[in-house]
Each structure stands twice: as structure tokens, then as C-alpha cells.
Amino acid sequence: MTPRWDVLADGVYARRYPDWDLTIGLVVGDGACLVIDTRADAEQGAELANAVREVTPHPWTVALTHDHFDHAFGVSAFLPCEVWAHENCHRELAARDKPDLALPDRLLTDRAELDIGGRRVGLAHFGPAHSDNDVVVHVPDASVVFAGDLVEFSPPGSFTAESFGTDTTLSGWPAAIDGVLALGAEIILPGHGPTVDRDFLLAQKEILDRLITLDSALRAGEVDAAAAIAASPVAEDVTRAALRLG
């Protein structure tokens, strides 16, 4: 896969990278732009910054969808600028104890609204899910949402074991998907992979609901690990990660 900018709507772009099939967002307004996620390190961030300059010369603001390295470790290449993220994202990045890691300086708890060159762009946190600091970026005039890893693309529309980390709150994830759906966007960008639609999110929510039911039954002693794995809608390694079976 050769990275390129795909036009999603007027002034709204996505760029996919072969590393982890990462998807980056860009929103261009009148005299300003917003970069959504920054890749995995300063070198990759610099590549992205140069790629943004292929599209627009406007000064940028950065928004981070969450603290995981592949999304948030390239910030230094964009400084000085405003960097928006959830307050827990700042906490998690500061705890990495990496002196060269740039931290966000504009923090939200639930919601924030940005003016990107006359375009209204909303940032929203719908509670702990994939991480405890997931933020979605909504561009209402284009009916586009950059959902970060709240939406996990892995053919045929399932999850990977890496979707469920020690910082994942399985029980909160369906409600976060409901939050994304409530925005009413027609185009939804996962943190990895191509655009998806509302039906894709509904299918992911159904998988999560089934995993939550299995997790509850497992914790209550109603099923054992083998039975939970057998009844799971996803592969064994994904089930083990989601249900924290080791």
C-alpha cells in the first residue's frame, strides 16, 4: 500500500499507511487545518507533516484519538501548535517517561468544539471503551466522523487480539459506539482501515454485546473458559484478549 490522500468530502481527507493499516485524517478550512493523529514516532510524524503540506499550506491544529503509540507518538513533528486530546490521554502519555514525547496541551473531559478556518469540528469522548481516553472527531458539514480505534476494522468486520488491551473497558464499548452512531455521520473512519458505514458499527456492537454476555457468564461461574471460547463470535485469540483469559 502506497500512502495517499483520499478525498472523503470537500476539504476532508484520509491517508492510510501500510504500518498497522493506520488511517490518518485531515480537515482543511479557510486558512487553517486539523490533523487527526500523528503516527508512531517523530520520523513518521515528519513524513505526515510533509504530506499535509502537499494538500495545504495552512497552519495546523492536531487532535489525538487516543494515547496508543501508533496514533500519538508523532506529535513533536507538528509543534508548535495546539494539540487536543482527552485529559486521560495526557496522563497516559506523561506516564510513558519518554522525554522526547510531546504532550497534548488542550484537554477535554467530554466534548469540545473547534473552529477550523470557519468549519465547526466537534470532539467527543463517550466513556472508557477501547481505551479510557478515546476521542472521536466529527465534521458535521461533511457528515464524516474519524472514530479512532472505537471502530476496529479487521476483515470480515471483526476485531483482533490487539483491539483489547489492559486499558480496554469491554462493558463500556457498546455505549461508545452508540455515541458515534448518534452523530448521524454517513462516512465513518476507523483508526485502521477504510471507511465504513452505520451497519458496520451495528455489527461490531452486536459482537461486543455477545462478548460482554460471555464475560458476565464466565465471571459468574456459569461457563468455563473453554465453553466461552466455543460460544464466542470471534476467534480464540481475540476471545482470550477480550475476556482476559491469558
Rank of each mutant, 00 (worst) to 15 (best):
Leu245Gly: 03
Ala175Met: 10
Gly29Pro: 10
Leu34Asn: 14
Ala129Thr: 03
Ala112Val: 04
Tyr17Ile: 03
Leu64Asn: 08
Ala242Phe: 03
Asn88Lys: 12
His86Gly: 01
Pro104Phe: 04
Asp215Val: 00
Phe153Gln: 08
His138Met: 07
Trp173Leu: 13
Gly184Thr: 10
Asp224Lys: 06
Val196Met: 05
Ser158Ile: 10
Ser232Trp: 01
Arg219Leu: 11
Leu103Lys: 05
Ala242His: 05
Gly148Lys: 02
Arg4Ile: 08
Leu170Arg: 07
Pro3Leu: 06
Glu92Leu: 08
Ile187Cys: 05
Ser154Leu: 07
His90Ile: 06
Asp134Thr: 11
Phe146Trp: 00
Pro174Ile: 01
Gln204Leu: 08
Arg219Asp: 03
Pro174Lys: 06
Leu123Pro: 11
Ala49His: 13
Leu48Trp: 00
Ala142Asn: 09
Thr213Lys: 14
Asp141Lys: 03
Gly31Ile: 12
Gly184Pro: 10
Gly165Leu: 02
Leu150Thr: 14
Gly122Asp: 14
Leu189Lys: 06
Ala129Cys: 04
Gly25Gln: 10
Ala241Gly: 12
Val55Glu: 02
Ala40Arg: 14
His138Gln: 11
Arg16Cys: 03
Ser158His: 11
Ser232Met: 14
Asp132Lys: 11
Val35Leu: 12
Gly11Phe: 06
Thr61Ala: 13
Leu114Met: 08
Ile187Thr: 15
Ala85Lys: 03
Asp10Ile: 00
Asp167Trp: 15
Asp97Tyr: 00
Ala242Asn: 04
Gly172Arg: 05
Glu54Met: 05
Asp215Pro: 00
Leu150Val: 09
Thr169Ile: 13
Thr2Cys: 05
Pro59Val: 12
Ala241Ser: 14
Ala227Trp: 09
Ile177Trp: 03
Glu206Gly: 09
Leu107Asn: 15
His71Gly: 02
Gly165Ser: 14
Arg4Cys: 12
His192Gly: 03
Asp70Lys: 02
Val180Thr: 09
Val238Gly: 03
Pro3Ala: 11
Val52Pro: 01
Ile229Cys: 11
Gly122Tyr: 03
Leu181Pro: 14
Asp149Pro: 13
Pro57Gly: 14
Ala46Leu: 11
Leu218Ile: 10
Pro59Ile: 13
His130Gly: 00
Cys81Ser: 07
Val136Trp: 10
Ile212Ser: 10
Leu114Trp: 13
Asp6Ser: 08
Glu87Val: 10
Val7Phe: 00
Phe200Asn: 12
Asp132Pro: 01
Ile36Thr: 04
Arg4His: 15
His192Tyr: 01
Ala227Gln: 14
Glu113Lys: 07
Asp10Ala: 15
Pro190Thr: 00
His138Ser: 05
Leu208Ile: 09
Glu162Val: 01
Ala40Trp: 07
Leu22Phe: 07
Leu201Trp: 02
Ala185Gln: 06
Ile188Asn: 02
Thr160Glu: 11
Thr166Tyr: 14
Asp67Asn: 06
Leu208Ala: 02
His58Cys: 04
Glu186Trp: 02
Val139Tyr: 07
Leu211Met: 11
Ser76Pro: 07
Ala9Thr: 09
Thr213Glu: 15
Lys205Gln: 15
Ile212Phe: 05
Asp100Arg: 13
Gly74Gln: 11
Val139Phe: 06
Glu186Val: 07
Trp20Met: 08
Leu202Gly: 00
Arg240Phe: 05
Ala51Asn: 08
Thr23Gly: 04
Leu108Tyr: 15
Asp224Leu: 07
Asn88Phe: 15
Thr169Lys: 11
Arg15Leu: 15
Ala226Pro: 11
Ile207Asp: 03
Ser154Cys: 08
